[in-house]
């Protein structure tokens, strides 16, 4: 294993980690604020990819069309999240968390089949935009330009979430709700609106994740099933509701998966679960816990 191999796998790992972070950030935001695991996060990710497929079909294959479609797909998923929150989830606030989680699971079943009804059971692909084909060379290592998309989306997510959580009133309330809900209620602040915004932002990030992943994966009605568990683990290892913990965990997952492919190609699938199990056994409340 020479230096250039290590560098290229490291870069791939980091960009994969940033991609996981886009998905994990939305999930952990919802977890922190609403205290529920959103099983439908994987379905929203999948919807993002399918919307992307349809939008690219309409707008064409240009680079501009790609980014416009990605933004539109993410926003469309945001609206679906709004509908889920307003139609269903809202009625379960104050009930057991298990019921809320099972409600999101019912959506997994419904979305999975609805997608098959609309787009069929086969797989679809989205062409890579011209700007992102080819590769860069860096320290003698070649890295596909496409990975930059993951890297930039992840960084953008970090910056925008930071602005939301630390610079806006809504975000500050969201953090307060995550820390101590009853205190927020006692101050006379309506937390229900915070729930809605957190759920929408989570949905937009899931949709964005699906949109940016679409040129790299086969778009199928099962693509959400395996990723959701991995993202769950990222979020748990990071500490439930802890966004910066998720960032670190996502990078650990991305990098170790990337080297897993290199070192144990047959058992690369096992790597994330082993990491998660070890992390949870050593640091049951997340890597950033005291």
């Amino acid at each position: 294993m020479d230096l250039s191999t290590v560098v290229s796998y490291l870069l791939i790992g980091i960009s994969r980690g940033m991609f996981y972070f886009v998905l994990a950030a939305g999930l952990t935001l919802i977890l922190g604020v609403l205290k529920i695991i959103n099983f439908a996060h994987g379905s929203l990710y999948m919807l993002g990819a399918f919307f992307m497929y349809t939008l690219i079909g309409i707008m064409g294959k240009g680079t501009g069309a790609f980014f416009l479609s990605a933004a539109a797909a993410a926003i469309a998923v945001g609206f679906i999240s709004l509908a889920i929150e307003q139609l269903f989830l809202k009625h379960l606030y104050g009930k057991e968390h298990l019921m809320q989680m099972l409600l999101t699971y019912s959506l997994v079943l419904i979305f999975g089949d609805s997608i098959e009804m609309i787009w069929g059971t086969g797989y679809h692909t989205v062409a890579m935009p011209k700007l992102l084909t080819g590769s860069y060379s860096f320290l003698g290592a070649y890295i596909a330009k496409f990975y930059l998309l993951f890297l930039i989306s992840g960084l953008l997510t970090v910056i925008l979430l930071w602005l939301y959580l630390y610079k806006t009133k809504l975000g500050k309330i969201a953090r307060a709700v995550a820390t101590n809900r009853s205190m927020v209620d006692a101050l006379g602040i309506n937390a229900d609106a915070t729930f809605m915004y957190a759920f929408i932002i989570g949905g937009i990030l899931a949709g964005l994740g699906g949109a940016i992943a679409s040129p790299a994966v086969n778009i199928t009605s099962q693509m959400g099933d395996s990723i959701i568990i991995k993202v769950f683990l990222v979020v748990t290892v990071g500490g439930l509701g802890n966004i910066w913990g998720s960032l670190i965990a996502a990078l650990i997952f991305g990098i170790s998966e990337s080297f897993g492919v290199l070192i144990f190609p047959r058992f690369e699938l096992v790597v994330p679960f082993v990491i998660a199990a070890i992390a949870l056994i050593l640091r049951p409340r997340g890597i950033l816990s005291k």
């Binding site: 695991i37 968390h97 568990i229 769950f232 748990t236 998660a276 949870l280 056994i281 409340r285």
Partner: peptide, 28 residues
Amino acid sequence: VFLVRLSGIYFGMLTLALGQLVWAVVFR
């Protein structure tokens, strides 16, 4: 042994992690 140290959602997440670990080994 590891699960009972946790509670609530953390417990649920560790069941998923350990369970999927077993699945991944069987699958591969």
